[in-house]
């Protein structure tokens, strides 16, 4: 490709992908009188700071809203869901790759396909199950249900990862007198540590992003997660506090984006199901 069109095309994609984030940024730090000028007024340029930037919206977000509470709730759910997901998916993935023989691949595929069954199909039966269990309007509901999304995908991820690890080290340990179980407990975790880390990060990002179940099960503002509270509860009456809203969206997106950049290649290996070799 020629240089000039290449840079022009790259710039085009970056503007399209990044423009809403620039808009979050500029909204989060603009003074209200600079922010709320109707777009009818063509002399007032909305793309830049016409007045000096302000931290007023950020202070409002951290001082007078439940944002920090939502962050704490989200972190609590993340920790619990990560523990459940690692405890279920890592042994299952290892088992499918190394222990259950030739049915492993088929079974793994079957588990993976349940990842395609969406929350928007399951939220109706779940609303009933959650009510029966007395978990409505509690973070417990999210902790119980979120692994339905993470376990299938992560089992698949770990299975793929274990297959890519050479068998020699475990074989050598068995020749050295370790039992099969001892190899699994003492040798294998070290070998598949990067795979386990990928599971942790995937689960983290998923819990941060999930909206459907949170919307269905959580009704009290003080029990919301970030992805639910910000768009639903950061509205006073009919008035949107756009500055604080965009600040919250920005502060949540950036750490997630950094994690995604670090782990993207591993996620992609999972999604392409072996259609692409990593």
């Amino acid at each position: 490709m020629k240089r000039v069109p290449l840079y022009a095309a790259a710039l085009g994609f970056i503007v399209f992908a990044g423009f809403p984030f620039y808009w979050m940024f500029i909204t989060a730090f603009k003074q209200n009188r600079d922010l709320y000028v109707g777009a009818f007024d063509t002399r007032h340029v909305p793309w830049i700071f016409n007045d000096p930037p302000t931290l007023e919206h950020v202070r409002l977000l951290f001082g007078q809203t439940d944002f920090l509470r939502w962050v704490a709730n989200t972190l609590l759910v993340i920790v619990a869901v990560v523990i459940i997901t690692v405890a279920l998916a890592v042994p299952a993935g290892y088992s499918l790759a190394r222990l259950v023989g030739r049915w492993g691949g088929r079974l793994g595929m079957g588990i993976f396909f349940t990842y395609l069954i969406p929350p928007t199909l399951l939220f109706i039966p779940f609303s009933r199950v959650i009510a029966l269990l007395g978990l409505q309007n509690s973070l417990g509901a999210l902790i119980l249900v979120y692994p339905t999304i993470t376990v299938p995908f992560c089992t698949w991820l770990v299975m793929g990862f274990v297959r890519s690890v050479p068998w020699d080290i475990e074989e050598q340990a068995m020749i050295d007198g370790y039992s099969r179980l001892a190899v699994i407990i003492r040798i294998a975790p070290r070998l598949i540590l990067p795979g386990i880390l990928t599971v942790v990060v995937f689960t983290f990002t998923l819990v941060m992003q999930e909206f459907v179940y949170a919307l269905t099960f959580i009704s009290s503002v003080d029990r919301m997660t970030v992805s639910l509270g910000v768009p639903i509860a950061l509205v006073r009456g009919d008035v949107y506090h756009w500055g604080s809203l965009m600040a919250a969206a920005l502060f949540t997106s950036i750490p997630l984006a950094i994690l995604y950049n670090l782990f993207i290649d591993r996620f992609i290996q999972g999604f392409t199901m072996g259609a692409v070799k990593g």
Binding site: F13, F21, L35, G38, A39, F211, N261
Partner: peptide, 29 residues
């Protein structure tokens, strides 16, 4: 690449609220 991946990393609900503001009936940029 970091900017390119932003739309996929951001929680759907937060992206949607940002777009709601971008498409605002009075203030749409």
């Amino acid at each position: 690449r970091f900017v390119l991946l932003l739309p996929w990393a951001v929680p759907v609900s937060l992206a949607a609220i940002a777009w709601t503001w971008i498409f605002d009936s009075t203030f749409s940029v």
